[in-house]
Design a protein around this nucleic acid. Structure first.
Length: 414
RNA sequence: GCUGAGGUAGUGAAGUGGUCAAACACGAUUGACUGUAAAUCAAUUGGCUCCGCCUUCGUAGGUUCGAAUCCUACCCUCAGCA
């Protein structure tokens, strides 16, 4: 059978897991490391696909759960698939909906942050609330739609069918993302379930790809998703189990602190087969995520924070994050940053401050373009630095300037 | 000039004898946001030597143990009539 996805590694950085490469998809190549732009509901919030292209976005990631509810996967299929529907001609990814088991379950109304960051959270309660709000069984996950409350069941098979209907180039296996604080016994159970689901995903995915072959349609790729929270044995077990299966690449799920990358991501990436691409799910809003992720073997990232934070007025600059609504920017007639994005080339902080204060939607657009450009450019710089061997110099300079003396815990500059 | 209504914190607006430094909304200030239930959410918003004290509800007096709330005078605003 024809490969659904080809991945070529072009450079490696000695003594690290970092590499550069190219992911070849039916809708074009992705030069890695790459930041994949969040387009959950088949739109990159507040900006057009042309603008995404202009700031250097190479691929977009949408979400199966959201599109299943609205407008429906079948409708996206009838529209001609995700790319045609949203007028994005480049490569596309879909997430499986597995993360919503977490965000609508354990993290429900508490914020993901509260669960991921609390040192001494109530682990038993974390599991309990999962079971109450999102019922997980071997069969799949029972959800309630956040739109109208209707009961839904998503199984590995149905997630594959939905993702094939939506028609992205790269799909994610349906996984369970447990709260990192859940007791080990539960984490083990969740990993085993994720593995069983992964095998079912792969089986159904291959059947669907066989049908594509018969119809002379291009094949779609499937990434297995590694779980295992912060546990070394579990992470390595998960990476090794999935690594032995014929996935086109791998997602790494459930990591929330940059300081965890040198341990968790490293365990995973040194275990996974080297010749397949690795995607760090849901991380990559701050430079530490990007530098450490790449250093420890990540090829692609996706993260909604650049656009979400942009809509809420938090903008990235080389000297750290700023809040554009701060009073001091009211009459600051300089651009957000030394930056080549559309917003920085044409507008001042004072103007964008005014847009936010006035609740004008152009503010969200300009801020989103800027934040996305910042992240995409940072990854581009990292990619080049691997090719010319200046990665560690760049890392030190970049992180020192961005964080000053407030480096996130667990992050080192060497 | 007459009649009526009214003057409460940055603004609008509750409150009409004690539980009022005064609801609520907006505004303002700050913070958070990482596989998007997020153009969302949270905190602060009279002063201070801040688990307590001081000064505030047009101004000045008064009644009362106690007043933003009752009385008197004055000032001002708005509406209608002259």
């Amino acid at each position: 059978m024809k490969q659904a996805l080809e991945f070529t590694i072009t450079h490696r950085l000695n003594d690290t897991l970092a590499r550069t490469g190219v992911i070849h998809t039916p809708h074009g190549d992705i030069e890695t490391p790459a930041f994949i732009v969040g387009g959950t509901k088949a739109t990159v919030k507040a900006i057009t696909p042309e603008q995404v292209k202009e700031f250097g976005g190479q691929a977009v990631l949408a979400n199966t759960y959201h599109l299943m509810l609205r407008p429906g996967a079948e409708l996206v299929q009838r529209a001609g698939g995700l790319g045609v529907f949203m007028n994005w001609s480049g490569p596309t990814f879909t997430d499986s909906g597995g993360f919503q088991v977490f965000s609508l379950g354990v993290a429900y109304k508490k914020g993901i942050d509260a669960v991921a960051h609390t040192e001494k959270g109530d682990a038993a309660q974390a599991v309990k609330s999962t079971q109450q709000l999102v019922k997980i069984t071997e069969k799949g996950a029972h959800f309630r739609s956040h739109l109208d409350g209707q009961k839904l069941l998503m199984t590995p098979e149905s997630s594959m069918e939905l993702q094939h209907a939506i028609g992205a180039d790269i799909h994610m296996a349906f996984d369970e993302c447990p709260a990192p604080l859940a007791p080990l016994s539960y984490l083990i159970e969740a990993v085993e379930r994720t593995h069983a689901w992964a095998e079912r995903c792969l089986a159904r995915h291959n059947e669907l790809n066989d049908e594509h072959t018969k119809q002379s349609e291009s094949l779609q790729a499937l990434y297995g998703v590694v779980q295992g929270a912060r546990d070394e044995k579990l992470r390595k077990h998960s990476a090794s189990f999935l690594g032995e299966r014929d996935f086109d690449g791998y997602g790494i799920g459930g990591v929330f602190e940059p300081g965890e990358i040198p341990t968790v991501v490293k365990w995973v990436c040194e275990t996974l087969p080297e010749h397949k691409p690795r995607h760090l799910l849901g991380m990559g809003s701050q430079p530490a995520d990007l530098f450490l992720g790449v250093e420890y073997g990540v090829d692609t990232f996706d993260c909604v924070a650049p656009t979400r934070q942009a809509r809420n007025g938090a903008l990235y600059t080389r000297d750290g994050r700023i809040n554009i609504t701060n009073a001091k920017y009211r009459d600051d007639f300089t651009p957000i940053d030394e930056c080549d994005c559309y917003a920085c080339q044409h507008y001042t902080k004072a103007y964008i401050n005014h847009l936010f204060k006035s609740d004008e939607i152009l503010g969200a657009t300009l801020a989103s373009i800027h934040n996305e450009r910042f992240v995409v450019r940072t990854v581009d710089e990292i990619r080049h630095s691997i090719k010319d061997g200046t990665f560690f110099t760049l890392k030190k300079q970049f992180l020192t300037r961005y964080y000053g003396d407030k480096l996130p815990s667990g992050v080192t500059l060497s």
